[in-house]
Amino acid sequence: MKASVFYGKDDIRFEEVQKPVINDNEILIKLKACGLCGTDIHKVLEESVSKGTVLGHEFAGEVVETGKNVSSFSIGDRVTGGIHVPCFTCDQCSRGHYTLCPEFKKTNIHPGGFSEYIKIPVEHVRHLLYKIPEELSYSEASLAEPVACCIHGQKAVNIHPGDRVLIMGAGPIGLIHAQLLKKQLVKEVVITDVSDHRLNNAHAFGADTIINTAENNLRDYIQENGHPGFDIVIIAAGVSALLPEAMNVLKRGGTVVCFSPFTINPDVTIDAGMFFHDEKSIVGTYSVSPYEFEEALLAIQNGVINTEVLITHEMPLSDLGEAIQLTQKKNENVLKIVLKN
Rank of each mutant, 00 (worst) to 15 (best):
E103P: 10
N201M: 13
Y98C: 07
G229W: 05
A170M: 11
I234N: 14
F59E: 07
A3C: 08
A148V: 06
F276D: 14
V233W: 05
I300A: 00
E15C: 02
C93T: 03
T89M: 13
S195P: 06
V190L: 11
G253S: 10
Q154E: 13
A241K: 14
T285L: 12
K329I: 14
D208H: 08
C90G: 08
G321R: 01
G67R: 02
S115G: 05
L317M: 07
I120C: 02
V304N: 07
L199N: 08
A214H: 04
H152D: 11
D267L: 15
E15Y: 03
S71W: 09
L250S: 10
V257P: 06
K51E: 13
T89A: 13
N216E: 15
V54D: 04
E58Y: 05
T107A: 12
M168W: 02
Q325E: 15
I324H: 00
L320D: 01
R78S: 07
D278G: 11
E215R: 14
G153S: 15
T192R: 12
I109P: 05
R126F: 03
P228Q: 11
V334W: 03
E134R: 12
E58K: 01
G303S: 05
F293Q: 03
F293L: 12
G61A: 10
E15I: 09
N225H: 15
S142L: 04
K9S: 12
I27F: 09
V85T: 15
K32F: 10
V44Y: 04
E65T: 03
G76D: 05
K32V: 05
L218N: 05
S137Q: 09
I305A: 05
E279G: 03
V338G: 07
V63T: 09
I282M: 10
K32D: 11
T89Q: 15
I22F: 02
G206H: 00
V5K: 00
I132T: 01
G171T: 01
G81A: 04
V283Q: 07
R78F: 09
K43G: 01
G253A: 05
V147N: 01
G321C: 00
E62Y: 03
E135H: 06
Y286K: 11
K119Y: 04
T285I: 06
E134K: 14
M315S: 07
V190K: 02
K2P: 05
Q328Y: 00
I337M: 06
L180S: 09
E308Y: 11
A207N: 03
T209I: 14
Q325M: 11
Y130L: 08
V17R: 10
I41P: 04
M168Q: 15
K30D: 08
Y130N: 08
N265F: 12
A207Y: 04
L129K: 06
G52Q: 03
T53A: 13
E16Y: 00
V21P: 09
G303E: 04
F275Q: 07
T263A: 14
K340H: 04
